[in-house]
Simulated assay, not measured.
Amino acid sequence: MSWPVTELDAVARMRVLAAALPGAFITEAVLDAPFDRVWAVAADLENELPRLLRTVRSVRIIRDDGEDQVADITGHFGLRDSFDVVLRSGWCVMQSGRVVGGMAAVAEGSGTRFAFLGALRVPGTRTLGPVLRRAGRPLGRGMHARLRERVAEG
């Protein structure tokens, strides 16, 4: 017997990850720019992530083994955490013991579909899921808006 096989693009995989993480939110937008330009900005974690995500003050890559990295990320409220990062073309997942973040992008027509995911790993996340998802969506929409601006700046 043969099982059906399907391929999921990076944004579809990010949707699956969001569905699997309690309390995760995911936002998507189509940007009017080619994939290469969008991903060049999004994947520049040290320089661009603090500009794109208002909760992040700084990112410092402390180990870079190609696709596998470790980053120290500091927030504006003094929180600092070490994140395991998987970064490849069109896909980035960053996770610490308390937070999971992700970005995915795929070419769509002449533009790029971009997804942003966020989730907390704290007690009560499953119960607070609907509240966390509602609270996270504006964060994601703001990131999409700033990404559009950064890509347009070139």
Rank of each mutant, 00 (worst) to 15 (best):
F83K: 00
Q69W: 10
A107W: 10
P4R: 03
L120H: 02
A105G: 14
V38W: 00
A135F: 12
G136L: 02
G101E: 06
P34S: 11
S89H: 09
A42V: 15
A115D: 00
M103A: 14
V106N: 10
D65Q: 15
L53N: 05
T112G: 01
F114H: 09
P22S: 02
L87S: 11
L17Q: 13
L79C: 03
E48V: 03
R126Q: 10
R37I: 04
L117S: 05
W39H: 07
H144W: 13
D32V: 00
T55C: 05
G97W: 04
R13P: 05
W91I: 00
R150V: 01
D68H: 10
A42Y: 04
A107F: 07
A115M: 00
P138T: 01
F35Y: 14
R63W: 07
L52I: 07
L120R: 05
L52D: 02
D9W: 12
T74S: 14
L117T: 06
R37G: 08
E28W: 15
V99H: 09
V11W: 07
L21P: 12
H144Q: 15
G66W: 13
E7M: 14
V16S: 03
L45H: 12
M103K: 03
R146N: 11
D84Y: 10
L52K: 00
G129C: 01
F83V: 04
F77K: 11
L128T: 04
A104K: 03
P123L: 13
G140M: 04
D81K: 08
L53K: 03
A42Q: 08
A43N: 03
D32E: 15
V56D: 06
G136D: 04
V59Y: 01
Q95M: 03
E48W: 06
F25H: 11
L139R: 01
V122H: 03
T74I: 15
P123F: 05
T55I: 14
W91V: 00
D9G: 15
D84G: 15
E7S: 14
L52F: 14
E48K: 12
F116H: 10
R133Y: 12
V70N: 05
G140F: 04
R121Q: 13
S82C: 14
S89C: 04
V59G: 02
R150C: 02
E46A: 14
F35A: 00
R51I: 03
V86E: 15
V99F: 11
Q69N: 10
I61H: 13
V16D: 07
I61E: 06
L147N: 06
M143S: 14
